[in-house]
Amino acid sequence: MTQSDYDHREEGESLFEWPLDSAGMRMGAGELLDSLLATIQHLNRTDAWPLTILPPRFGDVLVDRERRQISAVCLWKRKPVKTHKEG
């Protein structure tokens, strides 16, 4: 992979949605935001997840307890494809 390939990865902005489990339903706003940020960090470290997600901006997070869902508009960039050299 060249530096050019690394710099020209697809990027965008999308709405991401996550279910609220019973623990999430009892959390306050600060706890929910901490949980959301932890989830994003986990996904960013997971090789199988194809995107690096930036934390949402203030006001871009919506908690819908009736639908048991938290959603956030986040910027993202596709992770570089790892290639394995055959030896």
Score class of each variant (00 low, 15 high):
residue 56 P to G: 06
residue 80 P to S: 08
residue 37 L to A: 09
residue 8 H to P: 00
residue 2 T to L: 11
residue 80 P to L: 03
residue 65 R to P: 03
residue 9 R to I: 10
residue 68 R to F: 02
residue 75 L to F: 07
residue 12 G to R: 01
residue 54 L to M: 11
residue 81 V to G: 00
residue 44 N to V: 09
residue 47 D to P: 07
residue 57 R to P: 00
residue 72 A to S: 08
residue 51 L to P: 01
residue 71 S to P: 06
residue 75 L to I: 10
residue 9 R to M: 14
residue 25 M to P: 07
residue 70 I to S: 00
residue 70 I to D: 03
residue 74 C to I: 10
residue 86 E to K: 08
residue 24 G to A: 12
residue 14 S to W: 01
residue 11 E to Q: 09
residue 61 V to H: 02
residue 84 H to Q: 08
residue 9 R to T: 13
residue 52 T to Y: 09
residue 86 E to A: 03
residue 10 E to I: 08
residue 5 D to K: 09
residue 18 W to K: 02
residue 68 R to K: 15
residue 18 W to F: 14
residue 19 P to Y: 03
residue 41 Q to D: 15
residue 46 T to Q: 13
residue 15 L to Q: 06
residue 74 C to E: 05
residue 59 G to E: 05
residue 13 E to M: 10
residue 40 I to F: 09
residue 38 A to P: 01
residue 2 T to K: 10
residue 75 L to V: 05
residue 1 M to R: 09
residue 38 A to T: 10
residue 62 L to Q: 10
residue 4 S to N: 10
residue 25 M to F: 06
residue 2 T to P: 08
residue 55 P to N: 09
residue 16 F to G: 03
residue 53 I to M: 05
residue 76 W to A: 01
residue 19 P to T: 05
residue 58 F to C: 04
residue 5 D to H: 13
residue 15 L to G: 00
residue 76 W to I: 00
residue 86 E to G: 02
residue 10 E to M: 03
residue 54 L to A: 14
residue 31 E to I: 01
residue 62 L to T: 14
residue 25 M to L: 15
residue 60 D to M: 05
residue 7 D to K: 14
residue 48 A to W: 01
residue 33 L to R: 12
residue 24 G to H: 05
residue 80 P to E: 10
residue 78 R to D: 10
residue 51 L to Y: 12
residue 17 E to H: 03
residue 87 G to Y: 07
residue 77 K to F: 00
residue 24 G to N: 04
residue 75 L to M: 07
residue 24 G to W: 04
residue 50 P to T: 04
residue 9 R to N: 11
residue 49 W to C: 07
residue 38 A to I: 09
residue 84 H to S: 03
residue 10 E to Q: 08
residue 86 E to T: 12
residue 40 I to N: 01
residue 63 V to L: 00
residue 66 E to W: 03
residue 7 D to N: 15
residue 70 I to G: 01
residue 20 L to Y: 07
residue 67 R to C: 07
residue 80 P to I: 01
residue 75 L to N: 11
residue 50 P to S: 02
residue 27 M to C: 10
residue 57 R to L: 12
residue 79 K to E: 01
residue 82 K to V: 15
residue 51 L to F: 09
residue 83 T to R: 14
residue 11 E to W: 03
residue 58 F to N: 13
residue 12 G to C: 04
residue 45 R to K: 12
residue 67 R to I: 04
residue 54 L to R: 10
residue 74 C to S: 13
residue 24 G to Q: 07
residue 21 D to C: 08
residue 61 V to C: 04
residue 44 N to G: 12
residue 34 D to E: 15
residue 56 P to C: 02
residue 10 E to P: 02
residue 65 R to F: 11
residue 78 R to L: 15
residue 13 E to Y: 07
residue 30 G to E: 13
residue 25 M to R: 12
residue 36 L to V: 09
residue 22 S to I: 06
residue 54 L to H: 12
residue 60 D to Y: 05
residue 78 R to G: 04
residue 42 H to F: 13
residue 24 G to L: 08
residue 21 D to Q: 04
residue 18 W to Y: 14
residue 85 K to Y: 12
residue 22 S to A: 11
residue 55 P to Q: 11
residue 22 S to Y: 04
residue 29 A to E: 10
residue 43 L to S: 02
residue 39 T to W: 11
residue 6 Y to G: 00
residue 53 I to L: 15
residue 73 V to H: 02
residue 1 M to K: 13
residue 46 T to N: 14
residue 22 S to D: 15
residue 48 A to Y: 01
residue 53 I to Q: 01
residue 67 R to M: 13
residue 70 I to W: 01
residue 77 K to A: 04
residue 5 D to Y: 13
residue 41 Q to K: 14
residue 23 A to W: 04
residue 23 A to M: 10
residue 79 K to S: 05
residue 20 L to M: 08
